[in-house]
Computed example of a mutant assay.
Amino acid sequence: MRDDLGCAPRTIDAYGRGLTAYLVFCATHLIDPISAGRDDIALFVRDLTDRPSFRPRSVAEHGAPSFPRLSNATVQQRLTAVRLFYDFLVEEGLRISSPIGRGRYAPGGRAGVSRRGLMPRFTHLPWIPDDEAWDAILTVASREPIRNRTMLALAYDAALRREELCSLRTDDIDPARRTIRVRAETTKGRRERVVPYSAPGGELLRAYLAHRSTLSRARGPLFLSESPRNWAEPLTLWTWSKVIRRIALEAGEPRFSTHTLRHLCLTDLARAGWELHAIATFAGHRSPDTTLQYIHLSGRELAAKLASGMAQIHDWRIALLAATAAGSA
């Protein structure tokens, strides 16, 4: 149903894995998922927060030390999948009500009781490289083939997500106006947008197009694989992720990911003084709340408020000194 409704394939995959985890949990604890209650949901939440994120085969054979636990975002995502499952059961008449609300729960449902989430939701600012880390990344990236350097440049210039970047086609590029058309079907919010790219990015793109013509002269996907197994085939998301991971490890910055360039671009726009709605339009955000994190990360508003507040305090103190001096005279 979600596929028919046009949800992104990776979203469907994530929901499927989340629902599978819940059904496995129910089978393990002899719980009927159709008739499960809030106490069973609470037990599932405890199971999610207490277990490791993965359990390799070697654990059973040799005994394993501690492993990283599921992240808060993963737990929230799995609860969303379970909530959608019970919403479906209610709609189909298999249940009267859902045992899991939309992230809110009050014990016993008593009136006047403060409602809280099933799980506290942590909101972390995205990591972006500082100048030293960026220099290390650029040093490694400068040795990359022209295709990879072009992709890095466009990912930053246009704040492109991984799927948006890898799905670009030759007819999405307008060299005369130096713009990129990001098609709706490739975006997270299903909203088409047109974004510019820089003159240096244009030089890299021109060089790459000349190189691409040696692989294929056919119009279509912009970035092509040069692997002997997939020669001149469209570059996959996973191949691009492996490229970025290799660069990150070689540069000594393991937190650098395919999404980091988007974060860095939007933060730089906030630092440059772009208004909230302009950054949201550039990024293709549906909600300004998503865009606000880049404003906060840039520190622009906080710095402006601090400067304004300090100026007022400074004037007030000087005014007091002036009044004291006049009284003494």
Rank of each mutant, 00 (worst) to 15 (best):
I100M: 03
I100Y: 01
I100D: 02
R102W: 10
R102Y: 09
R102K: 11
R102M: 13
G103M: 02
G103R: 04
G103T: 04
R104L: 15
Y105L: 00
Y105H: 01
A106P: 01
A106H: 03
A106V: 15
A106E: 04
A106D: 01
P107R: 07
G108P: 12
G108D: 15
G108F: 12
G108T: 05
G109Q: 00
G109P: 02
G109A: 02
R110N: 00
A111G: 04
G112Q: 08
V113H: 13
V113N: 07
V113F: 15
S114I: 15
S114Q: 15
S114N: 09
R115L: 14
G117V: 08
G117K: 03
G117R: 11
G117Q: 12
L118R: 07
L118G: 02
M119E: 14
M119G: 13
P120N: 06
R121D: 11
F122T: 09
F122K: 06
T123Y: 10
H124K: 13
H124G: 06
H124V: 00
L125N: 07
L125R: 07
P126D: 02
P126Q: 11
P126V: 06
W127Y: 05
W127D: 12
I128V: 07
I128A: 04
I128Y: 01
I128H: 03
P129N: 12
P129L: 06
D130Y: 10
D130R: 07
D131G: 08
D131P: 01
D131K: 05
D131Y: 13
E132C: 03
A133L: 04
A133D: 06
A133Q: 14
W134Q: 14
W134D: 13
D135K: 02
A136S: 15
A136V: 10
A136L: 14
I137S: 08
L138M: 12
L138F: 08
T139K: 14
T139Q: 13
T139F: 05
V140M: 00
A141R: 15
S142H: 15
S142L: 02
S142M: 10
R143T: 11
R143K: 10
R143W: 07
E144R: 14
E144A: 12
E144M: 13
P145G: 00
I146G: 06
I146W: 00
I146K: 10
N148T: 14
R149Y: 15
R149F: 09
R149S: 09
M151Y: 06
M151T: 13
